[in-house]
Simulated assay, not measured.
Amino acid sequence: MRWFKKFIRNLTISDPDNEHFLKFIHRLEVIVSKILSLLMIGIIFVSLFDLVSFLVQQVFSPPTGFFNRTLFEIFGLFLNVLIALELLENITAYLQRNVIHVELVIVTSLIAVARKVIIFDLEKKQAIDLIALALTILALSISYLLIRLSRIKDRP
């Protein structure tokens, strides 16, 4: 209840620079980012457990030692864990530098789209879906290249 009163007070203070309000918003962003980090760690462990249980089930089910499902599903599960790790890295980078790191976001997006390509089922999807994924990868790759080139030019 105290934080709510403080919030209302910060809203009503006539501060020309809005310094009090902006500090409050910044603190709120940090709290939300920390909560997201903890939740993402939980998701990573659940995804990892899902991957391990899937692999154990596939290895020890008849015929023993052979994967009953395609390797693409297994790669998809691996990439789920990697995507979750990248998202955690994005949140951590935000907490460290207080800025959303665009390069990390694009890399995470590329991994997510790559996962879609790996698990893409040509029997269930249409060619236009594959073209859309290809254009998405092209756009993200060009964005990543432009960001990397701008970082190289900024260095002395």
Rank of each mutant, 00 (worst) to 15 (best):
M1F: 04
M1W: 07
M1K: 10
M1R: 04
R2P: 02
F7A: 11
N10S: 03
L11G: 11
L11V: 07
S14T: 07
D17G: 10
D17I: 04
H20F: 07
H20C: 03
L22R: 02
L22M: 00
H26P: 01
H26A: 10
R27M: 01
E29V: 04
V30D: 08
V30H: 10
V30T: 07
V30C: 07
I31F: 10
I35R: 03
L36S: 03
S37H: 04
L39G: 12
L39M: 14
I41T: 10
I44G: 04
L48V: 04
F49V: 15
V52S: 03
S53H: 05
S53D: 13
F54Y: 13
L55P: 01
V56K: 14
V56L: 15
V56R: 12
Q57D: 15
Q57V: 11
Q58V: 11
V59N: 11
F60D: 00
S61R: 09
S61L: 05
P63R: 12
P63A: 05
T64K: 12
F66R: 15
T70V: 01
T70S: 12
T70Q: 03
L71M: 14
L71F: 14
L71V: 13
G76Q: 08
G76H: 05
L77Q: 13
L77A: 07
F78V: 15
L79S: 02
V81E: 01
L85Q: 05
E86L: 14
L87H: 01
E89D: 12
I91N: 05
T92Y: 13
A93P: 04
A93F: 09
A93E: 09
L95Q: 13
R97I: 10
N98Y: 12
I100C: 05
I100M: 14
V102A: 15
V102T: 13
L104M: 06
L104F: 09
V105L: 14
I106G: 00
I106Q: 05
V107P: 06
V107G: 00
L110H: 05
L110M: 07
I111R: 02
A112I: 06
A112D: 03
A114F: 08
R115L: 09
R115S: 13
K116H: 04
K116R: 01
V117Y: 03
I118K: 02
I119H: 06
D121C: 02
L122K: 09
E123P: 02
E123K: 10
E123Y: 05
K124A: 06
Q126T: 11
Q126I: 07
A127R: 11
A127K: 09
L130M: 10
L130W: 09
L130R: 04
A132V: 11
A132N: 09
L135V: 12
L135K: 02
L135R: 02
I137N: 05
L138Y: 07
I142W: 02
I142V: 10
S143A: 14
Y144N: 08
Y144C: 08
L145C: 12
L145I: 15
L145H: 11
I147L: 14
I147G: 09
I147Y: 11
R148H: 09
R148V: 13
S150M: 12
S150A: 15
D154T: 00
P156A: 06
